[in-house]
Design a protein around this nucleic acid. Sequence first.
DNA 1: TCAAAAGTGTTGGGAGTACACCCATGT
DNA 2: ACATGGGTGTACTCCCAACACTTTTGA
Lengths: 259, 259
Amino acid sequence: MTTPFAFPIAVDVVALTVIDRALHCLVVTRGIDPYRGRPALPGGFVREGEQTLQAAERELEEETGITPPGHLEQLFSYGPLGRDPRGPVLSVAHLLLAPRFSPVRPGGDASGAHWRPVDALLAPDSPLAFDHATILADGVERARSKIEYSPLATSFCGPEFTITQLRTAYEAIWGAPLDPRNFHRKATKTASFIEATGRTAHEGAGRPAALYRLAPGVDETAFVLDPPLRRPTGPAPVPPTNPLPGRMRDNRASTEGEP
Amino acid sequence: MTTPFAFPIAVDVVALTVIDRALHCLVVTRGIDPYRGRPALPGGFVREGEQTLQAAERELEEETGITPPGHLEQLFSYGPLGRDPRGPVLSVAHLLLAPRFSPVRPGGDASGAHWRPVDALLAPDSPLAFDHATILADGVERARSKIEYSPLATSFCGPEFTITQLRTAYEAIWGAPLDPRNFHRKATKTASFIEATGRTAHEGAGRPAALYRLAPGVDETAFVLDPPLRRPTGPAPVPPTNPLPGRMRDNRASTEGEP
DNA sequence: TCAAAAGTGTTGGGAGTACACCCATGT
DNA sequence: ACATGGGTGTACTCCCAACACTTTTGA
């Protein structure tokens, strides 16, 4: 073969945040066909001269007005077959974890941009366009796993946060309550995780909480939590971060099946 | 934008196995430019009508004569910029862990196909073409992490294996010795991992070892090892499986940097 | 009988869970 | 005062690293 077949490459962004103790995902309302009017992950096609990560940042800004305030990383690639009615499209999905960044304004091909509870978007009758429910599920699973070993959950908080705020992020992502006392000890005692700023926060009643920040010189995605903070959920831990363990789905780009 | 820019999509395969207690990677000698004569990961371009996983399987067969006997999964995507002198190419890398499958014969665009020790391929002056040293490093790191939680290391062994063979696989991948007694207990006592076949293997001197197989109904990639088998290496565990934590490198498709 | 490899028992320390309890603040 | 949330102390359990020890084979 001399000239290889060329494919459009799409990028999609799973942007997660915590609102009211529940995990929310940023979705746009599609302004163009296919799936016009349906909710979808923000995203679009990679242009000439772009890396996929740059394209993800650009599409996020165009469609939602957000300049990534948190941590953006590649998630997984899907396709190119069977995921877009227009033809083969490879999608490189990305994951963004960030504090609730307020003014979301739609633009580009999007006629709306909103934070929606992840639970609703992952329901069996998910309204999401394309294979975006699959991508979202993979993104949530990756987030669940990554915060076990990395300080990435601090991305959900502002630059300074209380232990309770951090714990709330963990609880929202894992969907399980944690013991506040043990979490406090674990978070404050683990090296290379967080450090006290000396300041305190007064929120409502109760003793004011000490404020912390991410420990200096620590990459949010570095795997520094040793031993890790493991999620409580029973003896059979859900599959972890990586490219989807068991329960594979339809048109993901790779990994399983196809004899 | 109406018609999106289209890119060639490549697939590359990091095929790992254990030979003489050391981790080896399958590399081909490139028979065409660019990088003609240089070692490279087996791979090629995705054709119309293929999923990336299928393309990875096909290229592996064409260039090395191997039909994936182990477990093939998607690793990470790189590019499309700055990784091929011919122009932008997105590469979807895959990871294959398998027992040493013997007859490797070169074909397609490859003029040679050989197992090479991973250590040499990852040396600072790595001979690998393109960004394949980066991809290999990511693949090795993914393998190191995945065998902590999944029975995937059994992929390195045949259908039946002794505990010592399994331990040798772990030691080769992690690059660290393990206590045979403790490993034996851990491997045999962990539920949903391996089961005895009742047969024994007589290799050289010493008491014959019981033969085991992967527990029935267990997906090799399912994350069933709870608690996980954690690698010995000191208190600061190397980054894990996922898309590269900290130390990002040049032209990977995504995740970090690029303001 | 000895060497080599397989496999079991035992023990001390470290980490996690559960929960009692004290601290500091708003009302 | 009292409710509310922040933070510490402690007992119990489980896992694991370390290593002594037994079992089963080949030479």
